[in-house]
Design a protein around this nucleic acid. Structure first.
Lengths: 247, 247
DNA sequence: GAGGTTCCTTGATCCTGATCAACGCGGCAA
DNA sequence: TTGCCGCGTTGATCAGGATCAAGGAACCTC
């Protein structure tokens, strides 16, 4: 495993530039490849910027490509025939997006923020999986991590109150926002931008827009958060927020 | 992959008896092993019968063993500190139970019905994973299948009404109950036993016992199901039930 | 048979979050 | 400027499911 794999100075890094992000967490695909495979992957992949709201993958049409997220946020959602919608997962860099070994995924993947992707054809990846055990291992680790995420969310949707759900969501985003270092932020406090609209937060938490808005207002009233702009949240004390999550 | 792998007559099957179930679906571990590995696995594993309510795995203590389910139903659940509980997955034969590459799993696994397991030590499996790509592939496929299950459940918990949730659950169980052949059951009808108590169904669907009970009564009143005994359900027309699920 | 248990159902009432509705704000095009 | 939008907030009301409460049925053990 590449626990602390930043021993190679970036300038001399044999990794294709698209793939550096993958080394940070076990959720990208590049960490497991050897130099030759990386080179091929880089040759066959292309960098892509996707604007908010655009679809990367749809339940209707079979996916022909896979991607690694280099920057931005992607939502995975499911919809009922009558239009009710549920976001079943959020993915951040350097997550892998796509559904190996299956032509379609029953999921829709959409860019939430402006998103930078490293995209490559399905057959290239599948061949690489076939002859590189490490690659499949990395994908497996990511699937296990997504499974943990999904099950945490199940607990949230099945058993938490609206207030707890919103607090849980805020904490999740706070944890996905890299801590700006040396900014003199007091210990235990954070400041971050919500990548999702209220409607998306509602679809993630199984609530309505109005309820999300009201709970944010109440958390503000309790001094747990400050809402600086619509999207900008300040958490003076993370422990206070944690105490609101129910777990 | 072993799509229809029952070409070998069972009497002449080189598979250890514990592992035959694994061939049916991509959720067991044996399908991927060669004869020698199967022999070792069989030598190091033992068959185990677990009574309803007994714990196979707990969030508190690190798991030291993995299992394959040979018969019965296992529930995976999470609990909040105040006791609220959510079942986040149900596993049937020949699913694999355990959390590779992690000492603890944040989940509790309990037998729902009387369950037959094939259990083996963690280190044996992890060594086999290391030198058999096929094994990890099978585990990966199961993780992907569990992920799909979890996300279906997310949609159910986040966006469906109580009636739809109960219908969805019944249909899920119906589909996991092997169709008794040649019993002269009319086409499209099914008859099955609920493996879970009302309380467990409630914990699975994010509802209360009372709501589950009432919705079952209402579905009965609408002629969608008949409740023959507390646990025995008869679905005269599966399409009627499907129409109640919301999807 | 009495008494306990567990599991399930049903009724009455309450409350959280949904629904319906109005409005504020900022951006943007005509 | 005037209208839009899209996005978010707030208020009033409603309703679905939770909660509280009681009781029935099946199964123990004594």
């Amino acid at each position: 495993m590449t626990k602390s794999a930043t021993s190679v100075p970036l300038e001399n890094d044999p990794l294709p530039d698209l793939c550096r992000a993958c080394k940070a967490r076990h959720r990208g695909i590049c960490g497991a490849l050897d130099a030759q495979q990386l080179a091929e992957l880089n040759r066959r992949s292309h960098k892509q910027v996707v604007e908010p709201g655009k679809t990367l993958m749809d339940a209707e049409e079979p996916t022909s490509a896979y991607s690694n997220i280099l920057a931005g946020v992607v939502k995975l959602s499911k919809m009922l025939p009558d239009g009710r919608q549920q976001i079943v997962g959020l993915q951040f860099a350097p997550d892998f997006v796509g559904r190996p070994f299956s032509q379609e995924s029953a999921l829709k993947a959409e860019a939430v923020t402006s998103t930078v992707l490293c995209t490559f054809p399905r057959n290239v990846l599948e061949r690489m999986i076939a002859d590189s055990a490490g690659l499949e291992h990395n994908l497996y680790l990511q699937a296990l991590a997504e499974l943990d995420d999904a099950r945490d969310l199940l607990l949230t949707l099945g058993r938490k109150t609206a207030r707890e759900r919103v607090a849980t969501f805020l904490l999740m985003i706070a944890r996905h926002t890299p801590k700006a270092e040396g900014t003199g932020e007091p210990q235990g406090s954070t400041d971050f931008e919500l990548p999702l609209t209220r409607a998306e937060i509602a679809d993630f938490l199984g609530l309505t827009i109005e309820t999300v808005s009201r709970q944010l207002t109440k958390l503000k009233g309790s001094g747990v958060i400050r809402v600086e702009a619509n999207r900008r949240i300040c958490v003076p004390d993370l422990e206070l927020l944690e105490a609101e999550t129910g777990d």
